[in-house]
Simulated scan of single mutants.
Amino acid sequence: MPSQATVIPVTYRAMDEKDLPAAHALSQTMRWPHRLEDWSFVLGLGTGFVAEEAGAMIGTALCWKQGQQASLGMIIVSPEHQGKGIGKALMKLVLEALGERSTLLIATPAGRPLYEQLGFIATGTIHQHQGTLKAPPRALSFPGETLRPYVPGDTEAIIALGNRATGMSRDEVLGALLAAGETVVLERHGEVAGFSIMRPFGRGHAIGPVVASDTDHAKALIAYWCGAYAGSFVRIDVTGASGLQGWLAQAGLIQVDTGVAMARHGVPQSDSTLQQFAIVSQALC
């Protein structure tokens, strides 16, 4: 009589720094661009969980509390273990950690049905653009306004703008981004009125967030980077409502993917006079 195959149980636990190399390797099997440094950055801002089988990492999920709001991402299940409920178990762990916070995520078409089962609803789209950055066809300037590099005295104003544009408490996230990257500020009559951040990420650099009052000012904040980074590989993820898609293509940043923005327990209430045209990332949103 043939013996039954041994069933190896899947175990779940909190993620810590020693798990980063294995998490990075897992993301590489999915052809994600994240560097080990990118994993370290996001874990340092949030909470993570891993799924293991026989001591090998087969899944990850991270989440970030941002006041009474939150985001989640880095949801990965190894290809050979998909369809076994591991992703759902990891999602339940991060949602339990977040409680009743208004929670955002960016879904792939494959992941969307699971997220809908867990109470997420679609709220828009996110368009991933990337390529070799070049100068856009038209430089933009505005009377009484100037673009200049960030100085530490701008920190409070930048965080306030970021919070207003998203309806989230992004003090920690924006503080970490300001330390990790370069920032350009739109100054209007002596006051900070917008900003964009360029940081190392993946195959090159990423722009985000971009916060401004309108599309033309968002274009100016993105175009600023064309001088120092022309010829570099750059990624930017913009909202479907940004109106930037065609203009980004002219700047060498071609749309390569689209995700679905989803929310659970409502959508954070943002300031209607500001907009986050480019998100930080599809994890931190």
Rank of each mutant, 00 (worst) to 15 (best):
A179S: 13
H205A: 10
R170H: 07
R199P: 02
G208L: 06
I159R: 07
V185L: 08
A176T: 02
A180G: 01
G153D: 09
S141Q: 12
I159V: 15
R203M: 12
L186R: 14
G190M: 11
E187Q: 13
M168A: 08
A180F: 09
A157G: 03
T183M: 06
G175R: 09
P149G: 12
L174V: 09
G175W: 06
F201D: 00
G153C: 05
G208V: 07
G190W: 10
R148Y: 13
T155M: 07
V185C: 14
R203T: 11
G175L: 06
N163Y: 02
A165V: 04
T146E: 09
G190Y: 06
I207Q: 01
E187K: 05
V210Y: 06
S196M: 01
A179E: 13
F201G: 02
A206D: 08
R203S: 13
A157K: 12
L178K: 12
T146F: 03
I158T: 09
V151A: 12
R203W: 12
G204P: 07
I159D: 02
A206R: 11
S141M: 08
G144H: 07
F195E: 05
R199G: 01
V210G: 01
V192K: 05
T183G: 10
L161T: 02
F195I: 00
P200L: 15
G202P: 03
E145R: 12
E187I: 08
E187L: 09
R203Y: 14
T146A: 10
R170E: 07
A206N: 05
G194W: 10
G153P: 03
I197A: 02
A165K: 04
T155I: 02
E182Y: 10
L178R: 11
R188I: 09
M168C: 15
A180M: 10
L178Q: 08
H189S: 14
A193E: 05
V185K: 06
F142L: 09
L174I: 15
E145P: 00
E145I: 05
P143K: 13
T155N: 02
P209C: 10
D171V: 11
G153L: 07
E172S: 10
E156N: 12
S169N: 09
I159T: 06
G144N: 05
S196F: 11
S169A: 13
E172D: 09
G167F: 06
H205L: 09
Y150I: 04
M198R: 04
G204Q: 11
E172I: 12
H189T: 08
G204E: 11
P152E: 10
G167E: 07
A165R: 01
P149R: 13
S196C: 08
V210M: 04
T183P: 05
V173G: 00
M198I: 14
A180N: 11
F201E: 00
M168E: 15
R203D: 15
I159L: 00
I158S: 00
Y150A: 05
T183S: 12
G194S: 02
A160S: 14
